[in-house]
């Protein structure tokens, strides 16, 4: 699967493994990532968030064109990863938690486009 980002965000291209449409998959990729991977994605993505959000807000709610949906998916991945960098000392799992792979939810499998 090749994911292409809008030209002005080509600097994020090395991190497109985080352009993941669903919460369920984002959670899984986060759990199997290393601390270093989490931090690397977090640092780069955080710096670009003002521009990312401004671009996403140039489209009406829930009408992000396919050309830009990867940006939304990467932003959602940042929301998934951020607590692990900011609160959980880079632990890829939620510490002292219920087994994460047993958590289900109808919205978890729906693409956040």
């Amino acid at each position: 699967m090749s994911v292409t980002l809008p030209a002005e965000f080509s600097d994020l291209q090395p991190l497109v493994k985080w352009a993941i449409p669903t919460e369920y998959e984002r959670m899984k990729v986060r759990r199997f990532a290393t601390s270093e991977e989490l931090k690397a994605f977090y640092d780069v993505m955080l710096a670009r968030m003002p521009a990312v959000l401004e671009t996403l807000d140039s489209f009406p709610l829930n009408e992000i064109p396919a050309s830009h949906s990867s940006l939304m998916h990467m932003a959602m991945s940042l929301a998934e990863v951020a607590p692990h960098v900011e609160l959980y000392k880079l632990d890829p799992n939620v510490p002292y938690a219920f087994q994460e792979d047993r958590l289900m939810g109808p919205e978890m499998g729906i693409a956040d486009d």
Binding site: L56, D57, F59, L61, N62, M72, A75, A79
Partner: peptide, 12 residues
């Protein structure tokens, strides 16, 4: 939410 950035913020 009213905007895509609000969607993101709510998701966090």
């Amino acid at each position: 939410p009213k905007t895509n950035s609000q969607r993101w913020a709510q998701h966090y």
